[in-house]
């Protein structure tokens, strides 16, 4: 059977991997292709690039990064961030991305999901959803978690699935950066709303958090950034921790 996936996420700005706390004081961490390649060797099951470039040059650089990654990385990789049109999707897939993530543009225009799924297949369409608890429900946030779209997150993921999303990348705006574990309640609610695989994101602070979200919710994959980038923990440590908790994972990497 399909195993749970461990995914490092690389935020890329103007061609460099960066890590910022709440989008301020971004710090450069390294070259995206080198980092993706070393994570892939260390046993990452997939890589996600999130392009947070503000300029056209930065976006063009991302295409080059995707091309180089396709030549050097032997695991699937997803590229998201700033995808606004079917042309953006086409460019990224042609450059060699396995999947493309869309967020704000899909919220504004859900038919973009359908268009991409019809043309390239659902398997390469990832809809990224940033959700924030507002009262008794969760709202979909856009523009890097800064704007409340007013949409109910659970309704939105169902709509995204109906439009042809092949995967939901779910980030909890509430737990993101807190490092106290994934948002189990939100993740469970989203997993229960759809049949599409869900990737949990936001809040991972230590390897045990991966096992926890896998055991306590039905997610297919979980993602973290800082714990890997800051070399606090390795992919291998996360996988060992998952295995100890009885979670089926792919044994791979540095062996």
């Amino acid at each position: 059977m399909i195993v749970k996936r461990i995914i490092p996420c690389l935020d890329v700005k103007e061609g460099k991997v960066v890590k910022g706390t709440n989008f301020v004081s971004l710090r450069e961490l390294g070259d995206p292709v080198d980092m993706a390649s070393s994570y892939s060797r260390e046993g990452a099951d997939e890589i996600i690039f999130l392009d947070i470039s503000a300029t056209n040059e930065g976006r063009q650089t991302m295409i080059d990064i995707v091309k180089k990654t396709a030549e050097t990385v032997f695991v699937p990789f997803t590229v998201g961030g700033g995808v606004k049109s079917i042309d953006d999707v086409t460019r990224l897939l042609q450059a060699g991305a396995d999947k493309v993530g869309m967020n704000s543009a899909a919220v504004a225009n859900p038919s973009l999901i359908r268009e991409a799924a019809d043309r390239f297949g659902s398997q390469c369409v990832v809809v990224a959803v940033d959700a924030k608890r507002i009262g008794n429900s969760w709202h979909v946030m856009t523009h890097g978690g800064s704007r409340d779209s007013g949409k109910d997150a659970l309704k939105w993921v169902k709509e995204a699935e109906l439009q042809g999303a092949g995967e939901i990348l779910l980030t909890s705006v509430d737990t993101d950066g807190v490092k106290d574990g994934f948002d189990l309640e939100l993740t469970r609610a989203v997993v229960d709303s759809v049949r599409t695989p869900v990737i949990a994101s936001g809040g991972c602070g230590k390897p045990e958090h991966f096992g926890e979200v896998f055991r306590k919710t039905g997610v297919s994959a979980a993602l973290a950034a800082s714990i890997f980038h800051e070399r606090i923990y390795s992919i291998d440590q996360v996988k060992q921790s998952c295995a100890e908790q009885g979670v089926d994972i792919r044994e791979a990497g540095l062996f």
């Binding site: 399909i2 398997q123 092949g166 049949r195 695989p197 792919r250």
Partner: peptide, 10 residues
């Protein structure tokens, strides 16, 4: 199971 069959399998 859900189709497509997507992911790492033994």
């Amino acid at each position: 199971h859900i189709l497509p069959h997507i992911g790492w399998n033994a």
